[in-house]
């Protein structure tokens, strides 16, 4: 149990997906302009990460390893993720049309989010057990959502600030990410 807690905290705060591992930066800079869309994006990514970890763990341990075709894992994992995102998209469209429209283009784009393929590859290289994989995915997703929410809060305020013209937009967002990362170093001693 303590191992699972360590994995979870490590994923959320210490080895944060965005600030330390550099996974999922495209949505981080693309969607972090408004708090609302940042949080729904974070929740969607967390959900896909958890389901993808579950599916790829089963496929890796019951198909790829017994058949000794582990070298095929990149192709298989990306296909699994693409299929999952498609199924989730259809499911949301049928059950909750409002949510479907609020996600818009970002839902299909989750396929090419490095965080999703990243967590499945991390699970595979670390050889995590079934429960560890799921906990790692949930922790990673939560850390992603947390940083995305903090960043969007800062950027909403930044719209009103007097930023130098050449630093407006992306450059200043990078500098803020660096400062945010430095702040997160403070968590590194907790486990």
């Amino acid at each position: 149990m303590s191992e699972l807690v360590a994995i979870f905290l490590g994923m959320v705060l210490i080895n944060n997906f965005i600030l330390v591992r550099f996974l999922g930066l495209c949505p981080f800079f693309g969607v972090s302009k408004q708090l609302g869309s940042a949080i729904s994006m974070g929740v969607a990514v967390t959900f896909v990460m958890a389901i993808a970890s579950l599916a790829t763990w089963l496929i890796r341990n019951y198909i790829l390893i017994p058949l000794d075709i582990e070298y095929m894992h990149i192709v298989i994992f990306i296909l699994v993720i693409a299929t999952l995102v498609q199924i989730i998209e259809l499911f949301i469209k049928k059950t909750n049309l409002g949510l479907y429209f609020s996600f818009g283009i970002y839902l299909p784009l989750i396929t090419t989010n490095c965080a999703v393929l990243g967590i499945t590859l991390i699970n595979a290289t670390q050889d995590y057990s079934f429960s560890s994989s799921i906990v790692a995915a949930l922790g990673g997703g939560l850390g992603f959502t947390l940083v995305l929410a903090i960043m969007s809060g800062i950027r909403e305020k930044l719209e009103l600030a007097n930023t130098p013209k050449s630093m407006k937009g992306l450059p200043i967002a990078f500098i803020i990410a660096a400062l945010l990362g430095l702040a997160f170093v403070g968590f590194s001693g907790i486990i």
């Binding site: 013209k165 630093m167 992306l170 450059p171 200043i172 660096a178 400062l179 990362g181």
Partner: peptide, 21 residues
């Protein structure tokens, strides 16, 4: 700090700003 992850954000942000300036 430049070797640590945070340095990467800092360097890219400053370079982008410089190119625009």
């Amino acid at each position: 700090i430049f070797i640590l992850p945070y340095g990467a954000f800092l360097v890219i942000g400053l370079l982008m700003g410089l190119f625009r300036r």
